[in-house]
Simulated assay, not measured.
Amino acid sequence: MEPVVIVGGGMAAARLARRLDAPTTVIAGERHPAYNRVLLAGVLARQYGPEVIALPAPGPGVRWRAGVRATAVDTAAREVVCDDGTREPYGTLVLATGAAPVLPPLHDGELPEGVRAFRTLDDALADPGERAVVVGGGLLGVSAAAALAVRGVDTVLVQQGERLMERQLDAAASTLLREQLTALGVEVHTECRVRRLRPGGVLLARGSPRPEAGGRYELAADTVFLACGVLPLSGLARDAGIAVGRTGGIVVDERLRTSQPHVHAIGDCAEHAGVT
């Protein structure tokens, strides 16, 4: 039986690995075992520990390579190249690379000290300090802000749009959500754009609703969490000549097959009929 290689160790990859009846290798990337990413806010709030959101372990036929990242796919040789110098041969390759947080333009490509995305278990386990700023008022940002407030962290939520969770909620529901966050102690600012990230806080664009003393539009924070949306992680596929669609996802058909034989894609990285 030909081996299956899955690139990515998230929820989609873990579930698939448990269901396959073939020798399977998972190139997981993260150092942690697979976990339910939807429940990260509860870990951030310290309402429960990482063990609560852990997913069931794959069976004995699965080799789980934690902390190893795929750097290239050689479709001619049918091998995955890893960052530790090893190569994993495959009969079938499944790309389950997920999505990456949207980040603002960065100096030297590095996040300033104290600034992190809210996307992984390591992000949820990090010590936020006494004061935090959450940038982004979508589902992830709202969840992070509420979790921090429940934990007793002085929290400010900054949203560029007119209201919170504007993709999911109408104006009335968004107003109720804002009232709930305020009741938890979250300071909420909408129509407020971040101009610059820096160690120790953020600088807001001029005209934002909260100028500091001396006319400086600045929010101080021990930690800044970025929750500005996500984009499919499809660079590995693109570099291998596999078709990527208009949303940035890896194009798949109704059987999750990509444009390259023996290669499939599942989860947040996949795009079907123009939708990720």
Results as ranks from 00 to 15, higher is better:
E2V: 04
V4D: 05
G8P: 01
M11N: 11
A12T: 06
A13I: 05
R15M: 00
L16I: 10
A22Q: 00
P23A: 04
V26K: 03
V26N: 03
A28I: 12
A28T: 11
E30V: 12
R37Y: 02
G42L: 03
V43N: 09
L44T: 07
R46S: 14
G49E: 11
P50Q: 10
A54R: 13
L55S: 13
G59V: 08
G61E: 09
V62R: 02
R63K: 04
R65Y: 09
A66L: 06
A66W: 02
G67S: 04
R69E: 15
T71C: 14
D74V: 05
A76G: 13
R78S: 07
R78K: 09
D84N: 15
G85D: 07
T86D: 14
R87L: 06
Y90S: 07
V94H: 11
V94N: 08
A99C: 07
L103W: 08
P104L: 02
P105D: 10
G109K: 04
G109C: 07
E110A: 12
V115G: 02
T120I: 12
T120L: 06
R131N: 01
V134Y: 00
L140C: 09
G141V: 01
G152D: 10
V158W: 00
Q159I: 02
G161F: 13
L164M: 04
Q168T: 15
D170Q: 08
A173Q: 10
L177H: 07
R178D: 01
R178A: 08
E179G: 10
L181Y: 11
V186T: 14
E187M: 01
T190R: 03
E191I: 03
R193M: 04
L197H: 03
A205R: 15
G207R: 13
G207D: 08
S208C: 14
R210Y: 02
P211H: 06
A213W: 00
Y217R: 13
L219D: 05
A220N: 05
A221Y: 08
F225H: 06
L226V: 10
L226A: 12
L231A: 15
R238E: 13
A240S: 07
A243S: 13
T247Y: 04
T247V: 03
E254D: 00
L256E: 10
L256Y: 12
S259A: 08
Q260N: 02
H262P: 03
H264D: 06
I266T: 09
I266D: 08
D268C: 06
A270W: 05
T276E: 14
